[in-house]
């Protein structure tokens, strides 16, 4: 046989496929990566912020509302785009175009498919977070040079959603339940996980609910880096990081199982 080395870099090949698909639509995608933060920061940060800044809330402690909001939106935007990327392309690969089944007929296996897609979503999140962070800096809303580290923190926030949603998407034959995930999962999290106001402002009974969601931890970590307050409570930052990593690890383990099962079912 000629040059049929078993590709041990199966993950890389799956990543390459996703990149090939992305090349066809990257202009629109990059444009919206710019537009989303500009619109949100202008409307909520600058517009709404001009009212909020008049208040004497201790939560802001002398910060502008824009500076408080920006890192929260950064993490929450990564959550939304990662959730989307983990739902529809996985359904397409397994059910609509069935390209994952085509991959599986080659030396590529289920693990490569899960990790290759996951790596691709990670790369997309780094891109989205980088663009967003540049805009935060341009808005003058970055309080610390540590905001550079907010990029990986926000990307990890996205991945903490991507992994379990991928696992779920692989169990579905139609996208009907995705709406429920977005409407009853992603949107409430976006609103209630500390993006727009500190979670302490919520009724005490609800606060523990926020603590168990990855977005709460992602927002807190991203914000601590953007504001430069992370040094004040490094232990807390590590807990946030650990929660995100735990969601990723458990999510990937389930995704490996559900994707594998769907590939075997054919």
């Amino acid at each position: 046989m000629t040059a049929l080395a078993h590709p041990r870099s199966g993950i890389g090949r799956v990543f390459e496929h996703r990149f090939m698909q992305y090349r066809r639509s990257y202009r629109a995608s990059i444009f919206s990566s710019f537009l989303t933060p500009v619109l949100f920061l202008a409307a909520m940060g600058v517009g709404l912020g001009s009212y909020v800044d008049g208040s004497t809330s201790p939560a802001l402690a002398g910060l502008s509302y824009l500076a408080f909001l920006a890192p929260g939106l950064l993490a929450a935007t990564c959550m939304q785009s990662a959730a989307f990327e983990a739902a529809f392309p996985i359904m397409s690969g397994l059910v609509w175009s069935r390209t994952f089944h085509a991959m599986h007929a080659t030396p590529i296996d289920g693990r490569d498919i899960v990790l290759g897609n996951f790596a691709w979503i990670g790369a997309r999140m780094v891109l989205v977070a980088t663009v967003f962070t540049v805009i935060i800096v341009l808005f003058g809303a970055a309080a610390s040079p540590l905001i550079v580290l907010a990029i990986p923190a926000a990307a990890l926030t996205g991945l903490a959603f991507a992994a379990p949603i991928m696992a779920f998407a692989a169990t579905q034959r139609t996208p009907n339940k995705f709406n429920a995930v977005f409407r009853f999962g992603i949107t409430p999290l976006f609103l209630f996980s500390g993006t727009f106001y500190p979670v302490d402002s919520l009724p005490a009974a609800i606060q523990p609910l926020a603590w168990v969601t990855p977005l709460y931890h992602g927002v807190a970590l991203t914000r601590a880096l953007s504001l430069g307050t992370v040094g004040g409570a490094p232990g807390l930052a590590l807990i946030h990081l650990a929660v995100l990593l735990a969601f990723i690890a458990v999510g990937l383990w389930f995704a490996y199982r559900t994707v594998g099962k769907t590939l075997l079912r054919g």
Binding site: A3, P7, S9, E16, Q21, S97, R98, P107
Partner: peptide, 22 residues
């Protein structure tokens, strides 16, 4: 069929070859 309908005809062949490590 399990073709990638978003890609071109040629791209479908190229990426498939890549899966075999070519």
């Amino acid at each position: 069929d399990t073709l990638d309908t978003e890609l071109t005809v040629r791209e479908n062949l190229l990426i498939y070859g890549r899966y075999f490590g070519l």
